[in-house]
Simulated assay, not measured.
Amino acid sequence: MQKKTSFSTKGQRADIGDLTIYRILANRYTDAVGPFVFLDHISPKVHTSPVDSSTGAHPHRGIATLTYIIDGEDEHFDSAGNYAKVYSGGIQWMKAGHGVLHDETLQPDSKTDNNRTHAFQFWINLPAKNKAEQPEYLAIQSEMVPQKNLPNDAGWIKVIVGSYEDLQSIIPNYTTQFLYHIQLQPGHSFNITIDEKIEVAAFLPSQKAILNGDEFGEGEFIEFDRAAGDILMVNKLQEATDIILFGGEPYTEAIVAKGPFVMNTSGEIADAYRDFYAGNYGKIKTDAGRV
């Protein structure tokens, strides 16, 4: 049985500097898909001069942030002393835990002649028991991202978070969660089975695709029902198309989100702001780790 579409929608503009950004999640229909409570799509863009793209130093608490870079070079600093550059195909993952400052800058990839930037940022909500833990950080280059070809030369699947068949991401799982990047070749299809009660959504970043018989366009976010069933993805274009598929088990604890903080109560949000203004998240040393 194929899963039914609950709704589809497009994002709202939320640009930073020279980057064209669409806020996909949260939206007017839902605040979360499994543990995922936020998704910004940094749209594909070709740059002819240096890019103004710094997010500026800002705090987080109660979540893990994940930046997946399709094209570009992402530089990360945080107040726990972590520093790294991740290049096209790589991932920046940071567990904010009880509080951390970070800053990211996306530029064209200095290792290639590609002047494009294209990326996604997700926020992954942490269970209450993990919100008070120490911050953690992973810089994952493209060759470390699990990937395999689909049957019948249909394309490929990358496992950004979670697992698929014999592939397993190195990003920690605090609940059942998955984030896949699927590329389908022209004239091909791919079917995936989703268990009952698992929340799942798809996003089409650059081309249209047919999902369970319905055609959706570029930039559409599609959420499916929670019944067990299949999602059949079909590409009838003359070029490859990409599908971002993500979700997980429902987050059953209360969610209170304000600004960069996602907690379980309003009192915890107040504590997060108080600790931030008191300087308890530390400071970023922008020369840390640079060579």
Rank of each mutant, 00 (worst) to 15 (best):
D242N: 09
L106S: 03
V46H: 15
P250V: 12
A26M: 04
L211Y: 07
V86F: 13
K85V: 12
I198R: 13
A228F: 08
T5N: 09
T55W: 06
D287A: 13
E239S: 14
L101C: 09
A80G: 10
G11L: 14
F246N: 08
K158C: 06
S54K: 10
N235Y: 10
I24L: 02
A14L: 13
A257G: 05
S43D: 14
D166Q: 15
N125G: 05
Q183E: 11
V161L: 13
R116T: 11
A202C: 13
K208G: 15
K283V: 12
I194S: 03
D195K: 12
G279T: 03
H41Y: 11
Y87R: 08
K4C: 14
A96R: 04
L245E: 08
F120N: 09
D275S: 10
D31F: 15
G62W: 01
S49A: 15
I210Y: 06
I269K: 00
L184A: 09
T48F: 15
F203S: 10
A270G: 11
D166L: 15
A26L: 04
E196D: 12
M1N: 03
H181C: 01
I21P: 13
H181R: 03
G155L: 06
I63A: 09
A202H: 05
E133R: 15
I171E: 09
E104C: 05
S54C: 11
Y174V: 02
I69E: 01
G90T: 11
G229Q: 09
N264Y: 00
A84R: 13
I160T: 08
D287Q: 13
L167D: 12
I210E: 06
N173Q: 14
T193P: 07
G11C: 15
W93S: 08
I269N: 00
G89F: 04
G99R: 04
L211W: 09
A26Y: 06
K285H: 14
I210R: 12
I69C: 10
V100D: 06
E253K: 11
S53F: 06
D71H: 15
F7C: 06
H47K: 11
K111V: 07
Y281E: 04
G162V: 03
S110A: 11
I182M: 02
G72I: 08
Q92M: 13
K197R: 14
L126T: 02
L126I: 02
V161N: 08
D153W: 00
K95S: 12
T117L: 07
M263N: 00
R61W: 02
M1W: 03
Q107T: 13
F7W: 08
K85F: 03
R274S: 10
Q207I: 09
I171M: 07
Y83F: 14
Q168D: 04
I42P: 05
Q168L: 10
S6F: 11
A26Q: 07
R23I: 02
M263E: 00
